[in-house]
Amino acid sequence: MVLKELCNLPGISGYENEVRTFIRHEIADFADEIKIDCLGNLMVKKRGHNCSKHIMYLAHMDEVGLMVEKIDSNGIVKFSTVGGILPSILPASRVTIMGKKTLQGVIGILPIHLQKNAIMDPIKMDSLYIDVGASSDKDLQGSIEMGDPIVFNTAYEEYGRLWKAKAFDDRVGCSIMIDMLKQNITPAYDTWFVFATQEEVGLRGSATATYQIQPDFAVVLEGTTACDNPLVERNRYTTQLGKGPAISIAHNGFVFSKKIFDFFKSVSEKHQIPYQIKEKVAGGNDATNIGKGEKGSYVGSLSVPVRYIHSPVSLMHPEDYQNTLQLALAIYQENHSFLTL
């Protein structure tokens, strides 16, 4: 499993190069064909016994992060967010700016002693900035410039019985797909494994991948939000850690087919793999594009519950990884039965 290495790599939307190179190297021995398209999607083909239908598995490589917007004359780096990030999680966090040089920085905040309205004023995005220790913009010439990507400075680690890292959303999906490829199974139908780009900025990579592959059946592998903590109302948990892969009924702008939903459930019951139903329709993923792309397609979404996604630190349960992988493999080996239903 290469989840740890994947999460430690930088790769905000549009800047997935390092992730792509790493994955390409990992799966090279197990691919029948490798394509990289204009948007940077890494598309890996596994030839099946039959080429009459096309199957697609998709996970996105990109992560949420920041981007250098402006460098002030005093050396302060202003940034914009890439993907959905709340301002409240940013103060006093550590980031790495991936410019010509790699610079460490911290997101500054006025000390509590000097804030006039500490209890009242929420953090506003435009008041935040990165301090890299530069005294002026001249210090930064040749090191970083506008548009450079910025990632959270978080290393993979074990946290009690859980795993901790940035970017489980969606390197966990990438890692599961790599593990699926490494099984070197010859599928019933030609199958494409798509490591997609730019999900976090509007499901963009998956759109062009879908156009190219026109799948008959597709599965999106995601890291999804788990809000299972005692301060949140039970009806907002969405998913819970340790309860197995989450099967989606619907999410923002897309309702999954009842057929797919039942198929996923029946496969997991047959193999006695625990699963949970994603209890909220909040958030969306690439499945929307696939489902309504071109001629339309049967698409399902299998998600690994992840706490604190879209923040510098996210947590997931190893058993959920294993169970999601097992379910994905079972679907991979049995999806022909769905297509002949």
């Binding site: 959905g84 990030i85 709340l86 999680i89 901790k164 939000t225 809000c227 907002r236 909220k280 604190y308």
Partner: peptide, 9 residues
């Protein structure tokens, strides 16, 4: 880690 509620929710 201090928990957060993701932007989606």
């Amino acid at each position: 880690v201090f928990s957060t509620v993701p932007p989606h929710l």
